[in-house]
Design a protein around this nucleic acid. Structure first.
Length: 169
DNA sequence: GGCGCCGTCTTCT
DNA sequence: AGAAGACGGCGCC
C-alpha cells in the first residue's frame, strides 16, 4: 500500500460538500466527503490580525460545533474523518498526532519515537505540514524540542492561537 | 541567547 | 540522483 483512497474519486457516489465558518480571522472551510471531514482550510496568516479572534457565523451541524468548541477552549472529540490521502508514513504520523490530548503537546522527536522511527524527526516535520485537516488532526500540538513552536501550514498565528485556547503554554 | 553545521529520513523533481 | 524540508544536537562565539 502506498497511497490510500484518494478523495477525488468522483466516479463513485461520494457526495462531497463544503461548510464555511466565517471568523474575524477569515473564512474557515471544511470539506465533507460522505458526511465525514476530508479537508479543512484555514486562510494563511503571515501575521496575527489586529482583531481578536471570534467566530462571526457558523452553521449548526456537528462539524461547526466542534470548531466552535475548539475555539472556546472546551474539549470535544473530533468527528469521524474521511479516509485521508497520504503515504503510509504520513498516515502513521497523523495517527500518532491524533492521540495527543487537548492541552498537551508532543515534540517532533517524541512523535518520531512514537511511530518507531526515532531518527526520522525531520521527515515527521514535513508530514505534519501535509496534514489535510488541521484542527481535526491537531498538528498544532506538535512543537519543537527546544521550546520553539516549529511551523504551521496556515501560518504560525493559528498555532499560537490554538495553543493559547487549549492553554497548553 | 543566537548562529551555523551536520546527521538523518521522506518526498518531490 | 539531487534537493528540500514545520528537526535535533553540538560546538562556538
Amino acid at each position: 500500500m502506498k497511497k490510500s483512497n484518494p478523495l477525488r474519486n468522483s466516479e463513485f457516489h461520494v457526495q462531497s460538500s463544503a461548510v464555511q465558518i466565517s471568523t474575524t480571522w477569515g473564512i474557515i472551510e471544511i470539506e465533507l466527503v460522505d458526511g465525514k471531514v476530508g479537508g479543512c482550510r484555514l486562510p494563511f496568516l503571515l501575521k496575527r490580525p489586529d482583531a481578536p479572534f471570534a467566530i462571526v457565523k457558523d452553521g449548526n451541524d456537528l462539524v461547526s460545533s466542534f470548531i466552535a468548541a475548539v475555539f472556546s477552549g472546551s474539549n470535544s472529540t473530533p468527528p469521524t474523518l474521511a479516509e485521508l490521502e497520504g503515504t503510509d508514513f504520513q498516515q502513521q504520523v497523523w495517527r500518532a498526532i491524533a492521540e495527543i490530548p487537548p492541552g498537551e503537546t508532543k515534540t517532533y522527536g517524541e512523535l518520531a519515537q512514537a511511530i518507531g522511527r526515532p531518527n526520522a524527526v525531520r521527515a515527521v516535520g514535513s508530514a505534519c505540514g501535509k496534514n489535510p485537516v488541521p484542527l481535526f488532526i491537531p498538528c498544532h500540538r506538535v512543537v519543537g524540542s527546544n521550546g520553539g513552536l516549529g511551523g504551521f501550514s496556515c501560518g504560525l498565528p493559528w498555532k499560537e492561537l490554538l495553543l493559547t485556547f487549549e492553554n497548553a503554554r
